[in-house]
Structure formats: structure tokens, C-alpha cells
């Protein structure tokens, strides 16, 4: 899947989980830049991404991400 499409899917998931359609993500966006994206929301976002891409990440891999770009790369690696 193209990187842009992964980013779009993640953006949709984050908007839905945080109930904010105005959220715009870029690869440089950090969780702390997005209101409401706290550690518990991060769990819900990651699990929704797992469901969307039919995969499951190691917890250690998804708790040390620097930004959305790292998350896109993680998904990209998981889905090949």
C-alpha cells in the first residue's frame, strides 16, 4: 500500500478515535501535538490500526514511536 494511503487511513482512525474531524496528520506530527492523543488514546488508535491492517504489533514497538512517520513505517513494514 502506498505510504500516502497508510497515512490517510491512520488519519481517519485518529479522527474517529479522538472525535475530531479537523485533525490533520503529517509524518512529522507527534502525539503530543494532537489534543487528546494521550497514552490511553494511543492504545485505542494502535489497536484500531491493527484491526484496519489486519496485523498486531509488539507493545514495545508502539510505545516508543517518535512521530506519525514512525507509525506509518511500522504499518508499512507489517503489511509488506
Amino acid at each position: 500500500m502506498p505510504v500516502q494511503s497508510v497515512l490517510e487511513t491512520i488519519t481517519q482512525i485518529v479522527r474517529e478515535e479522538l472525535e475530531d474531524d479537523a485533525i490533520v496528520l503529517t509524518p512529522q506530527t507527534r502525539a503530543r501535538d494532537v489534543p487528546g492523543w494521550d497514552s490511553l488514546a494511543h492504545v485505542r488508535i494502535v489497536v484500531a490500526i491493527e484491526d484496519a491492517f489486519d496485523t498486531e504489533f509488539e507493545t514495545s514497538a508502539v510505545t516508543g514511536l517518535r512521530n506519525v512517520g514512525d507509525l506509518v513505517d511500522l504499518v508499512d513494514a507489517a503489511i509488506g
Binding site: 497514552s39 490511553l40 485505542r44 489497536v47 498486531e56 507493545t59 510505545t63
Partner: peptide, 14 residues
């Protein structure tokens, strides 16, 4: 403790 709760949250959400 908060970090232990996050691990449980992953199990619960999945």
C-alpha cells in the same frame, strides 16, 4: 503503575 495499566489496556482493547 500507570505503565502497567497501559499494558492491560492493550489486552482489553484487543
Amino acid at each position: 503503575m500507570c505503565e502497567a495499566f497501559i499494558a492491560e489496556e492493550f489486552h482489553f482493547r484487543r
